[in-house]
Design a protein around this nucleic acid. Structure first.
Lengths: 215, 215
DNA sequence: ACCTGAACACCGTTCAAGT
DNA sequence: ACCTGAACACCGTTCAAGT
């Protein structure tokens, strides 16, 4: 994550640099989440004044984009899934993206707040488009499937670390009102143990197969 | 949205009330978005002091929950999709939810920021579970499919009003670097006209059919 | 009973000043 | 050249005081 070579003199860790700022921001964002990241906090973490940061990053937004760049670069160092079956390749690629992003939960809020993907995310899409085309989809169908895949990934990430919101709402409500919702009651009672990752795997498989083997 | 009966005396619009506060907040949130909603702004909109609001709402979070309650109540007044085919019923229900939420874009940020669904959202899930069960899914499969449906809806809403982020990133990048991404180049060139709603329709149909007719 | 002014503990960012 | 203190224009919320 960003070069952080010591020169070994000033203060604790050499001169201020974009790299040191990003490293500090990453530490904070991993600990406290994006919504609690502040320029003042980053400065304190480094042991400098808030204003010094502005010599190296334009503003808070560009700091977040920098963090996403570093993450995407790290991802694109992994080899992308290969294999003979294009459908499986799309699924595997989606899972790989999901796993990285899920392991860095701050990335979701970051993407949402800057409304931008770093260019280093492009190889993944390229890989997906190639597989979709190999599976026989035309331009329009490929765009639809690719877009659906990403939206599913983001939706999952966005709500994956909450419990299932519906069941939470049901349980809170169910306590008071009788059980006007018989289906929900049944499901809540049996409460199948489904991890967010299981749910993602099932969903993305269904999605991809739905696109590649239409009814 | 929310009772707002005039008593017709004090100031412009009668005494302060939870209803008037919610109505003002809704106006602001529709105009400026959730991230720009401030207690101070709501007070100004009504023509009172920021502190007066705290007599009627506990805090900013509960104000957002109130807005979501009003919206869900409005939704649950619509009849839910009927029809003989359970798969189609799930699709239609998802589309109905999508259309309402897409027509109130602030709702997405609101749900994300409070991390909670209002109880009035439950009938929709009940309806979906009933259809999934009628289609023959067991508890676990129904939970997976239901959860996938919602995550897809939220993912779509979250990124639907951005253009496709991948193509945006490609175009920005493509300008500089040659075309190392041949598939993306092809797709960007043909640029099929796909509206967010088209993408959603195709995706949710693929998803539901993928779950109900597994390979 | 209902409302509010002043204040507290925060933000991101600008700008003029320091070394 | 590089850093920073003071300041500006904001936040949500508390608390003691007003009517």
């Amino acid at each position: 994550m960003s070069s952080e070579r010591r020169v070994g003199r000033v203060g604790k860790a050499g001169p201020l640099s974009r790299g040191r700022i990003l490293a500090a921001a990453l530490r904070l964002v991993e600990r406290d989440g994006v919504e609690r990241l502040t320029m003042r906090g980053v400065a304190e973490e480094i042991g400098t004044s808030p204003m010094s940061l502005y010599r190296h990053v334009a503003d808070k937004r560009s700091l977040l984009i920098g963090l996403l760049e570093d993450l995407a670069a790290q991802v694109s160092r992994q080899p992308l899934p290969a294999g003979p079956d294009p459908a499986q390749r799309v699924v595997d690629t989606a899972v790989q993206a999901y796993d990285v992003l899920a392991a860095n939960p701050w990335s979701v809020q970051a993407v949402l707040s800057v409304a931008e993907l770093p260019p280093s995310a492009l190889p993944i899409s390229e890989h997906v488009f190639a597989a979709l085309r190999e599976a026989g989809l035309d331009d329009e169908a490929a765009v639809l499937a690719h877009s659906a895949m990403w939206r599913f990934v983001w939706g999952q990430l966005m709500f994956g670390h909450f419990d299932d919101l519906t069941l939470v709402a049901y349980r809170r409500q169910g306590a008071e009102a009788g059980s006007e919702y018989t289906e929900l009651a049944k499901v809540a009672a049996s409460a199948p143990a489904v991890t967010p990752r299981d749910a993602f795997l099932a969903g993305v498989a269904a999605l991809v197969h739905g696109f590649l083997r239409p009814a």
